[in-house]
Design a protein around this nucleic acid. Sequence first.
DNA 1: TCCTATCCTGAAACTGAGTGTCATACTGTA
DNA 2: TACAGTATGACACTCAGTTTCAGGATAGGA
Lengths: 197, 197
Amino acid sequence: MSGAVRTNTRDIARAAIRSELAQVAFDLFRREGFDNVTVNDLAAAAGVSRSTFLRYFGSKEDAVLGAVDIQGEQVVGALRARPADEGDWTALRRALDTVTELHRRDPDGALVMSQLIMRTPALGARTLEKQNGWRPAIAQALAERADPSWPDLLVPSVRAAVAVDCLNVAVDHWTASDGGLDLDALLDEAFAAFAPG
Amino acid sequence: MSGAVRTNTRDIARAAIRSELAQVAFDLFRREGFDNVTVNDLAAAAGVSRSTFLRYFGSKEDAVLGAVDIQGEQVVGALRARPADEGDWTALRRALDTVTELHRRDPDGALVMSQLIMRTPALGARTLEKQNGWRPAIAQALAERADPSWPDLLVPSVRAAVAVDCLNVAVDHWTASDGGLDLDALLDEAFAAFAPG
DNA sequence: TCCTATCCTGAAACTGAGTGTCATACTGTA
DNA sequence: TACAGTATGACACTCAGTTTCAGGATAGGA
């Protein structure tokens, strides 16, 4: 067991190829439009066979949305790292800093990515699906923060979902402003949308 | 123009066929599992050609999820009918009564439908996508309620998304309880998840 | 009643995504 | 060098969804 823990030469090579394929796919999608590019095109552009491409990414969408999975893990990780006495909303807001930080580090790349996703229904749908997959993990992390564990996960689930919504609405507005607005400010505004009542 | 307003004989026939096809599809999916039923199977079971079936429903998923579209329209309609001086959250909660009322009228049907959607990733994803489509309309309706229209749709969008999340979490829990819990109570609980802070 | 424009249907061909299989080539290890 | 595990490419296959086209039903007016 534990053959997955140590990264050997093969894993490194695979990761490199994977990121290379993702890059090629992203460029091609951006240039030609997601729907106008077939898996054959992607494979040809990357210099691998169709089989290989589909082995690295289970679907065309996944070639673009690997970043979304990573974001989810990072958010959950950041949430778990928050002090236990912090309020849920503050902890969630701070956990989302991992995402805004990514946008601050590469605004142009993030903007182009957002635009591609927003103008491609298939990518938007798949993104929603992936983000929806974050919910259980976030809710679980929230539940473990509360001293007297909630009777069930309803309240944590709602808060997890709300946080993700805030992120999405903020990113949408940020993207609509062509990156001109400040994402952290937008996110604060979004979180404030249910503060007063 | 306006040939779509008056419902003539043809429209009635089409609606009847459509609902018949949806019924056949639902039964077959429930019995065999969504992924184990092909469009050919559906067409054969309904006694129409594959072409016809795909003309009535753009996709396999849509054969099941027509109800979701209707729910969205109903929620928006109900929201617009709420008194203007009502708070956003109350108005949203009351608008969602249209959905809970549907569950109360046919609990067994609603339960089976929820179970089918929850155990079928493709249906879950498509449902999320459709519900995400409600957001702009709900946000717009909220924005029009506010006297001094908000600078932008950020706050209404967040509130719209949150309301839909509450619905989903509540329905998830209701489904997990096999319909044993009270959906309205769950929904109230969900809405209370961000009241105190 | 007949005529005509419109719409519905079924048949068929086509594209493209995703799955499964198999033989071959490569890579690290003993 | 020989061996075992793995990645690759080629190929066949299923199925969803689109498009085209021809024939048949129907509504509504003359």
